[in-house]
Design a protein around this nucleic acid. Structure first.
Length: 214
DNA sequence: CTCCCGATAT
DNA sequence: ATATCAGGAG
């Protein structure tokens, strides 16, 4: 990383912390680790607002991991229908709950290898659990982080794993988990995929992709 | 690479 | 009508 790149990264972090604060906030409502795991599974290609609507009733109807393990798949499909991909998600949730009970004593593991062995749990979901539940510094590369990190010039890769490692090299460790939530907040309100509001963006003077002339 | 898939904004 | 939403598996 050149000196100029270091300055740009430092400026990005400074602005993000100033604009969006340094308090970590999880947008997926949950009361424990397995609830966050299921909420994150449901969040694939679905807004977090929709997930929270669904999980509000879901976690009352299925109050324990065992309840999910014992769930009727057709009924669970109906319960999560509005989040999309409901057949895969229902199957994965039941399989995941069973595996957590049989192999992990009903606890959610904290290492990437174990997490990604669970049905329907990939690297992104695993990193959400590590960051939120176990407070391990980790970069969650979701659709917003990928898109905006590319716009900022922090990476030119399409591969989430490469992006994760590039960001880990460039961002200070204490910023990793904050960066996730700050970028997601930015992506939902200002740097919207379909129509970025560059003129309103706090990062527009450090963003190579900013278009303020509109 | 394709498929899974409903809800929402534009 | 179409792009997009805290992705993952085959």
């Amino acid at each position: 990383m050149t000196k100029k790149e270091k300055q740009q990264v430092a400026e990005i972090c400074r602005i993000l912390n100033e604009t969006y604060g340094t308090d970590y906030k999880c947008y997926l409502n949950h009361e424990n680790a397995w609830q966050l795991l299921i909420a994150t599974m449901l969040s694939a290609q679905c807004t977090d607002a929709r997930v929270n609507i669904v999980t509000k009733d879901l976690f009352v109807k299925y109050p324990t991991l065992q309840a999910f393990a014992d769930a009727d798949i057709k009924e669970l499909e109906k319960d999560i229908y509005s989040t999309g991909f409901y057949k895969n998600k229902a199957k994965n949730i039941i399989g995941c709950a069973k595996k957590l009970i049989s192999e992990y004593g009903g606890e959610v593991p904290s290492d990437i290898e174990s997490l990604t062995k669970l049905d329907g749990v990939g690297r992104k979901t695993a990193n959400v659990i590590r960051g939120n539940i176990y407070h391990e510094p980790s970069i969650v590369v979701d659709t917003h982080v990928k898109r905006i990190s590319r716009l900022l010039g922090l990476t030119d890769s399409d591969d989430p794993v490469k992006i994760e490692h590039e960001l880990m090299e460039k961002l200070p460790k204490e910023q990793w988990i904050l960066y996730n939530i700050q970028i997601i907040t930015l992506g939902r309100t200002i740097c919207i995929a379909r129509r970025p509001k560059c003129a309103e963006c706090a990062l527009n003077h450090v963003c190579p992709s900013a278009n303020v002339t509109e």
